[in-house]
Design a protein around this nucleic acid. Structure first.
Length: 473
RNA sequence: GCCCCCAUCGUCUAGUGGCCUAGGACACCACCCUUUCAAGGUGGCGGCACGGGUUCGAAUCCCGUUGGGGGUGCCA
């Protein structure tokens, strides 16, 4: 695969979240559109917080979104921890070239010094380049720090334009820890370099650190990549969404019955605007996406809008697709009816009426449960309300006798028969259907009644009607 | 504190100096359709943060203010 090389570099410290997914999607779209490569690199250098199972979680989440290792544009996953030797070599190379130096000042000492300064009424200076010219060699607990050069660093960002940083405000940051382990700033750059990454597209939180990385690229003698910083995804409080305080795990949305296509489509609208209708196929977005069109301001991750997208996508499904997508919910422990009573053909017959009543796939069982329950769960309030009407009993009895002798058991015939009974009781169909609905489904609301009765079948429907009648006495 | 980024309806946004009495989507409200509930249709509510410039003309360009956010780690 030739062409540009993009990447995402998540760290396996928890569930993959929607922000990471949005970044992945943007990178994926561009990589595919340009015939380039999408690299997945797991940045697992923080041994304190990493967990191996999260790595698989990231891979699964990406696959769910359609970013799959089977695609020729996909490369990886690479584990950053397996390139430690290269990171260290790069740090030593920088020491060699005078761009980095050893330092024996501990974090605690720096803090103490800052505290002293504050106590004395002056301003904390931070590290302050203490060991810059001490010419220290390697030793236990000695870190390697980058020697930030004088001048200014201009980050050429495709979405934000040129951003200028005064180098004197950037501290001599650590490259290798006291224990010899590389830190993110170094590892990230060295890996991008070795993996020949041409475009670094990531969230805006990294913008302030970008001059450091660019300086590293330059000190290592390479051209920095194209930078592109995406607007942050924020919560209602306008703060960066985080695993700690917000519901952001992709896995959770998946479990709740969101369709991957809906999630993908919605995520693509956060930080970029599709041309034409906002609900549109991936292929369209993939070919229209342009870095230059990426927005500058943060976007609120709005679950209600996601839900609207999901409803749209559910309605676009064929009955068969809807069945397959809903199956885990239909046969799961929360379905509300025993799995062995589920009947695919009945579900398929009524699916078209179920879809517009679902926001998530998890809603499906609740719409059709009465079809698969031995007896519908009678909602007491609905029953009480419906049968408080004087004509309700008459309508129910009328329906029973009319339906007993109905030649063809189909929705049209069922409807016509009830219209006649309603008319005899001076009721419009809307009112007349209520007692029958409660008797058949247990509720006052649900999918179209006569279609449901047709699917339920003559025998079971008559049994429920008679049972309801008996309960009235 | 310092550095950086951002600023159009409640939210996501269209808008790149005249086409804008600012358009769409979600949410909300009303009406229509109707076999309940949805879905769908129609309509409504609602916005260029503020102050200065530049210009014949500014949502669009410049400056400032205010507000929000991010970064500033031997986390990533």
């Amino acid at each position: 695969m030739t062409g540009p090389r993009l990447r995402i570099a998540p760290s396996p410290t928890g569930y993959f979240h929607v922000g990471g997914a949005r970044t992945a999607l943007f990178n994926w779209a561009l990589a595919r559109q340009l015939g380039g490569t999408f690299v997945l690199r797991i940045e697992d250098t923080d041994t304190e917080r990493n967990r191996p199972e999260w790595t698989q979680g990231i891979i699964d989440a990406l696959a769910w979104l359609g970013i799959s290792a089977d695609d020729p544009h996909f490369e990886g996953p690479y584990l950053q921890s397996s390139y430690t030797a290269q990171h260290i070599a790069a740090a030593l190379q920088l020491v060699e070239s005078g761009n980095a130096y050893y330092c024996d000042v501990s974090a605690a000492e720096i803090e103490a010094r800052n505290q002293q300064a504050v106590d004395a009424g002056s301003i904390a200076q931070g590290y302050g380049g203490w060991s810059r010219d001490r010419n220290l060699g390697p030793g236990p607990d000695r870190v390697v720090r980058f020697r930030v050069p004088e001048g200014t660093t201009v980050v050429r960002d495709v979405v934000r334009g040129d951003v200028e940083f005064d180098n004197s405000l950037i501290e001599d940051f650590v490259l290798l820890r006291g224990n010899g382990a590389p830190v993110f700033m170094l590892a990230n750059v060295v890996d991008d370099m070795h993996m020949k990454i041409s475009h670094v597209m990531r969230a805006e939180e990294h913008l302030s650190n970008t001059p450091k990385q660019q300086l590293l690229w330059e000190a290592l003698g390479e051209q920095p990549p194209v930078w592109a910083h995406l607007p942050l995804l924020v919560n209602e409080q306008r703060k960066k969404i985080s695993k700690r305080r917000d519901k952001v795990a992709l896995e959770q949305y998946r479990a709740e019955g969101f369709l991957p296509d809906a999630m993908v489509n919605y995520l693509m609208t956060l930080g970029w605007t599709p041309k034409g209708p906002e609900v549109q196929p991936w292929e369209q977005m993939e070919s229209d996406f342009r870095l230059e069109d990426v927005h500058l301001s943060p976007a609120f991750f709005d679950v209600r809008k996601l839900a609207a997208f999901n409803g749209d996508y559910i309605r676009m499904l064929s009955a068969g697709e809807f069945l397959e997508a809903s199956r885990p919910y239909l046969l799961g422990p929360d379905a509300g009816f025993p799995a062995d009573r589920f009947d695919e053909s009945k579900f398929l017959a009524i699916a078209g009426h179920v879809q517009p009543r679902c926001i998530t796939l998890a809603d499906a069982p609740g719409v059709v449960d009465f079809l698969f329950l031995a007896d519908p769960v009678i909602d007491a309030d609905s029953w009480a309300k419906v049968f408080s009407g004087a004509q309700a009993t008459a309508v129910l009895r009328g329906a029973i006798s009319a339906y007993e002798s109905l030649p063809d058991w189909n929705a049209d015939a069922l409807k016509s028969a009830l219209e006649v009974i309603g008319a005899a009781n001076e009721l419009k169909l809307g009112k007349a259907q209520a007692p029958v609905r409660v008797a058949i489904t247990g509720r006052a609301v649900g999918p179209p009644l006569f279609e449901a009765i047709e699917v339920l079948g003559r025998e079971e429907s008559m049994r429920r009607l008679r049972k309801a009648e008996a309960a009235l006495d």
